[in-house]
Amino acid sequence: MTADEHGPEDAAGEAAETGTDATEPAHEASEVDDGSIDALGVLGSEPRLEILLALGDRERAVRTNRYELTFSELYDAVDVASSSQFSYHLSQLVGPFVAETDDGYHLKYAGDKVVRAIRSGLYESTAAFEPVGIPGACVVCGATDLEALLRDERFVVRCRACEATLLSDSFPRSQADDRTPEAVVESFGYRIWSAYLLVRGGVCPECYGRVDYWVDCHDDGAQYTFAAMCAGCDCTIHLPIEVPALFHPTAIEYLWRHGIDLFDSPLWELFELVVSDEWTTTVASTDPLDATFRIAMDGEAVELAMDERFEVSPVDESLEADLADDDLADDVPVDDGVSESA
């Protein structure tokens, strides 16, 4: 998930505490340090992976995180020719992947991640996935003929009418295991929202580091995307600029009253709302950011604004009405109590 893109495929964000602005952060070349080389080199051994899996299997069996095994218990669980060889392999894991205590050994965070990656088949190719027709509308041409498919080991939502790619996301093999194509599509809907909820709090959905935000402009202002990039691992996510507004409590409650459950409505279904006459997005500026969003359904409207800090707030329409009344009052002649006589 180092470069996930939810939004137009040709596309290259919330709290002020993230220290962000509307421009894409500068990229620095990644460097490989000796610690990373040593740690990854440790994993190039079957007995060491077996030790990690043995610790993980025992945690799963007893349903206890950081469950500890003694040296003898761990040795008995791994197929190694001698205790001296086992001791050597275990010593290589202690530090980066395994913690040693007075009571035994348990997985550290990095070791747990390795175990989960092996179990889920992260390093294996994604299984076949047949295209599935899905509801929603194309943000490019407006057609309601979308499909989800597997392309180059990525989950893709495209428009059959104009062939535009509307969404692209990494597709791990585990997400297709024991799921029908329809269930796979549904799982991506929830996965995208879960990633956004983390990003909304300034948290990277991949490594949990801090994220920076900016807004990208596409097609000469025809489309805008809200982008978030992790300052640590560079995981990057692009979403329609309307998404932060959709997740404001005012919008969530408004949509609920009008029959739309945001959390159970995948992004591609909401495309249909965003391109309809019921939704209006106005971006006055991207640097600094100044955007407003208006939803009007069944004679009721709500308006929200997003500022340069990527914070969303409702526009006080009652205040606007008062200001409009004041403007009208300025145009009415004032009776100063002086009358003219013939």
Results as ranks from 00 to 15, higher is better:
Pro288Ser: 04
Leu149Met: 09
Glu130Tyr: 01
Gly202Ile: 03
Asp316Gln: 04
Val184Ser: 01
Tyr196Phe: 15
Asp307Cys: 00
Ala228Arg: 06
Ser83Phe: 10
Tyr196Trp: 08
Asp219Lys: 08
Ser72Gly: 13
Arg60Gln: 15
Tyr88Thr: 14
Leu255Pro: 02
Phe155Leu: 05
Asp325His: 13
Gly7Cys: 02
Ala143Gln: 06
Val243Ala: 06
Ile260Lys: 06
Arg179Asp: 12
Arg119Gly: 03
Ser339Glu: 11
Cys235His: 14
Tyr105Gln: 01
Glu308Lys: 00
Ala29Arg: 13
His89Val: 01
Pro240Asp: 00
Asp277Asn: 09
Ala183Tyr: 05
Ser45Thr: 05
Ala26Cys: 07
His248Tyr: 03
Ala227Gln: 13
His6Ala: 09
Gly95Gln: 01
Ser174Arg: 09
Arg66Phe: 15
Ile295Asp: 05
Val211Pro: 02
Glu50Lys: 12
Phe155Arg: 00
Asp10Glu: 12
Asp34Gln: 11
Ala26Phe: 12
Leu150Asp: 14
Thr144Pro: 02
Trp214Asp: 03
Trp279Tyr: 11
Phe293Glu: 01
Asp169Leu: 15
Ser174Gln: 12
Ile192Trp: 13
Thr281Cys: 09
Trp268Val: 10
Phe86Asn: 01
Ala22His: 00
Leu90Thr: 00
Phe71Pro: 12
Val139Gly: 02
Asp38Cys: 08
Glu68Lys: 13
His238Ala: 12
Arg119Asn: 04
His89Asn: 07
Glu28Ile: 07
Glu124Arg: 11
Val32Lys: 07
Arg66Cys: 07
Ser318Ile: 12
Ser125Gln: 11
His258Ala: 02
Met229Ser: 14
Val78Phe: 04
Ala143Cys: 03
Thr126Asn: 06
Ala39Ser: 15
Leu328Lys: 12
Ala99Cys: 07
Val338Ser: 08
Arg200Asp: 15
Leu55Gly: 03
Thr282Arg: 06
Gly259Trp: 04
Ile192Val: 15
Ala26Lys: 11
Ser30Thr: 13
Trp193Tyr: 07
Ser341Tyr: 15
Glu124Val: 14
Thr282Met: 02
Asp21Arg: 02
Ala228Ile: 05
Arg154Gln: 10
Asp212Cys: 06
Asp178Gln: 13
Gly95Tyr: 05
Phe310Ala: 00
Gly95Ile: 04
Met229Ile: 11
Thr236Gly: 08
Ala3Pro: 15
Val156His: 04
Arg66Tyr: 15
Ala127Ser: 15
Arg63Cys: 12
Gly19Thr: 04
Ala11Asn: 14
Glu340Gln: 11
Asp152Ala: 09
Phe188Ala: 02
Leu69His: 02
Ala22Gly: 15
Ala227Tyr: 05
Leu197Met: 10
Ser341Asn: 10
Ala231Cys: 13
Tyr67His: 15
Tyr88Pro: 06
Thr250Ser: 11
Thr18Ser: 12
Leu122Gln: 11
Arg151Leu: 05
Ala251Tyr: 10
His27Pro: 14
Asp316Cys: 00
Glu182Cys: 03
Leu55His: 03
Ala227Val: 09
Tyr75Arg: 13
Leu53Val: 05
Glu59Val: 05
Gly104His: 03
Val114Trp: 01
Cys217Ser: 14
Glu50Ile: 00
Leu69Arg: 08
Asp145Gln: 05
Pro135Ser: 04
